[in-house]
Design a binder for these strands. Sequence first.
DNA 1: ACCTGAACACCGTTCAAGT
DNA 2: ACCTGAACACCGTTCAAGT
Lengths: 196, 196
Amino acid sequence: MSLHSRYHHGDLRAALLQHAEAALRTVGADGLSLRQLARDTGVSHAAPSRHFRDKQALLDALAVSGLERLGDCFEQAVTAGPITTRLQTFARAYLRFALDNPELLPLMFARRHSSTDTEIQAAAERAFAIPIALIAEGQAAGEIVPGDPKRLGVTALAAVQGLATFVGSGYTADYDSEQLLDDLVRHMTLGLLPRS
Amino acid sequence: MSLHSRYHHGDLRAALLQHAEAALRTVGADGLSLRQLARDTGVSHAAPSRHFRDKQALLDALAVSGLERLGDCFEQAVTAGPITTRLQTFARAYLRFALDNPELLPLMFARRHSSTDTEIQAAAERAFAIPIALIAEGQAAGEIVPGDPKRLGVTALAAVQGLATFVGSGYTADYDSEQLLDDLVRHMTLGLLPRS
DNA sequence: ACCTGAACACCGTTCAAGT
DNA sequence: ACCTGAACACCGTTCAAGT
């Protein structure tokens, strides 16, 4: 085994990201180590720094790829039918993604420290544009109350996001998550106040 | 300065927790170091292990104290008046707490790894019982739709929790957080579907 | 251009020993 | 009972040197 064979002659950045996603699932964000990641990928511990300035840059890259995958889920959740079932399909897709990627969501919603992290911001914008478009459609058909569709979409998405947080925390362990989601969608669409 | 003076002859556990909360605000959960915490408190780096088995135990203790403080906020948010303003008062209190303690919330809603963390669970139960009681009151007065008040409360609390997550992430930087909360409460109470 | 290997300053955790 | 100080195995980050 020559010294040359230790070189990773491919797309090291992509390889690191792939191994990082796997490590995120097994050891979590806190347990993720750049040195272990380098070992997994078969390069020296200093090699990742060529592609990710520091550990935060790697976590940010994971957040971007997570937001892109969430966008894919949203695209697959676009259906026809009555507005309530269309909304519910989106909500289900979001909740499923959140529960399937519990370590990824905190990265996607991490507090941006300094300047606006344009890359993450753009990826989030793209993903959330899909359900927001549904809101706008529903409004055009008179099926949803009027108002800025983006503002309205954010409140609806936030509700599902928050439910995922509660379910993930285990505070609602005595309830079924799908039933809670059904309740959430019903309360969000019909309202908590009686419809006389 | 005798060797004896390095001993912390008081409630070291409480002192550690107090410094840990301050450190959480300044350097965040990731930046929090047990060794630095020991230095801040004036004890050896091994002393904290007597009171917190490991770093996770310290973070869990911070979560418990955070949930207790959230409970205090909820208690102060108990008011009289129409049901919508009472709900809004709770929602405002929750959002304010979440935005004022951005580093604490992820700890409070951290994924429980193994067995049910009974202490955290109990603290959460106590805090959330207060808004849930309001839901039950509203239902008794016929002001809120029927259903299990706990299930209903979780969905309502989740909505606010999710909004805090969105606002904290910066995805809604172009909107005012209080206005978003007003929208959320209105949509949650009246519903997204037109009231014909 | 890309990676290595050594070096530096930090960690969390453990444990015999001290008071 | 409570704390110290040394020890161990790990980190993230930097940088001259190699190919």
